[in-house]
């Protein structure tokens, strides 16, 4: 009986963790941007761009250069992250240097990424899909022998899982334990005060947006590798979802972590409803299960948003003459 439950947890966990990591990494990216005071709805587009170029790179490395799988994934991840960062530069330029409406420039990036992804894929490969269907899971030596925990985390695991955990820890330290983090957060709360003590608000916001681009680009490649096994012109709205989870998590890394676990769990349960024993006996419309994670997030938001802890100066271009 207990063994059954363990098996069930492991089998669900194998699907939950990759989804959760994608959402987590991208949410944390959004966190950097928003904490510095720049709304970043472009997460979706940056993910698409990172995932797209990452998939192209992966395709090239796997089938032309014929690198071993994990090494190819590693380089694809780096490519995706850099592309995401480069792409987010346009958002930073518009919203920081040009003091534009941040939602407009981000929407432009979203539109652009989707269009360019399909356009280039169809022009280069002839169809809108880049197929990189390989088995990216791997066993970590030694660690995978630990019962339950080892099975859950280290057997058939994705490279992305570990990178994701490392990123979470790094983000918490960077944001709360370093001078850079303090300055970045101050630019999102009260840029005038930050400026008055010598923090370069523009530079900090650039940093925030570029880091968010880096993480979202990375998340895009995670999505391709650990979730879809191909690139297909979009990332199934994961960028938007990550944004929503970040806000549900009240701009706090650990809360985002828990909410993304919860959301991913419900999503996976919904998607695998048929194969999960407990639900087999019941007659539930699959659509109801699919809606559930979204309803849950909305309810969480409705209950918690009254005391929203959004960064004070979010969305406002920094105008020094308003001090």
């Amino acid at each position: 009986m207990i063994a059954d439950i363990f098996n069930e947890i492991v089998s669900v966990g194998a699907y939950v963790i990759p989804v959760m990591i994608v959402l987590l990494v991208v949410s944390l990216g959004g966190l950097f941007s928003e904490r510095s005071g720049v709304i970043n709805i472009a997460l979706e587009g940056i993910m698409v761009m990172g995932g797209f170029v990452g998939a192209m790179m992966l395709y090239f490395l796997l089938y032309t250069v014929e690198l071993p799988i994990q090494l190819a994934v590693f380089f694809a991840l780096i490519t995706g992250a850099l592309v995401g960062m480069g792409f987010s530069f346009f958002h930073a330029f518009a919203s920081v240097s040009m003091q534009s409406n941040q939602i407009i420039s981000a929407t432009a990036l979203n539109l652009f990424a989707g269009a360019v992804g399909v356009f280039v894929a169809r022009t280069v490969y002839g169809y809108r899909r880049i197929n990189v269907d390989e088995s990216y899971r791997m066993d970590v030596p030694f660690l995978s022998d630990i019962p339950v925990l080892g099975e859950l985390l280290f057997q058939d695991a994705f490279l992305s899982t570990f990178i994701g955990i490392i990123i979470l820890i790094t983000v918490i330290i960077l944001l709360y334990k370093t001078r850079f983090g303090l300055r970045l957060r101050s630019c999102g709360e009260n840029p005038h005060a930050a400026d008055s003590v010598g923090v370069d608000v523009g530079r900090m916001r650039y940093a925030g947006v570029l880091i968010s681009g880096l993480l979202a680009g990375l998340g895009g490649v995670f999505f391709v590798v650990a979730f879809q096994n191909r690139f297909e012109s979009d990332v199934r709205g994961f960028g938007f979802l990550a944004l929503a989870l970040m806000i549900s998590g009240q701009w706090r890394p650990m809360r985002i972590f828990f909410i993304s676990i919860l959301f991913a769990l419900m999503r996976v349960v919904a998607a695998r409803a048929d194969s999960i024993m407990e639900l087999r006996g019941l007659e539930i419309e699959p659509e109801i299960l699919r809606i559930l994670p979204y309803v849950m997030t909305l309810v969480v938001l409705a209950l918690t948003s009254k005391r929203s802890k959004a960064p004070e100066a979010i969305g406002e271009p920094y105008d020094i003459s308003k001090r």
């Binding site: 346009f90 040009m98 534009s100 409406n101 407009i104 420039s105 432009a108 539109l111 652009f112």
Partner: peptide, 9 residues
């Protein structure tokens, strides 16, 4: 998309 980006500017 490029048009929208420039209208953001």
């Amino acid at each position: 998309a490029v048009i929208i980006y420039f209208s953001a500017l």
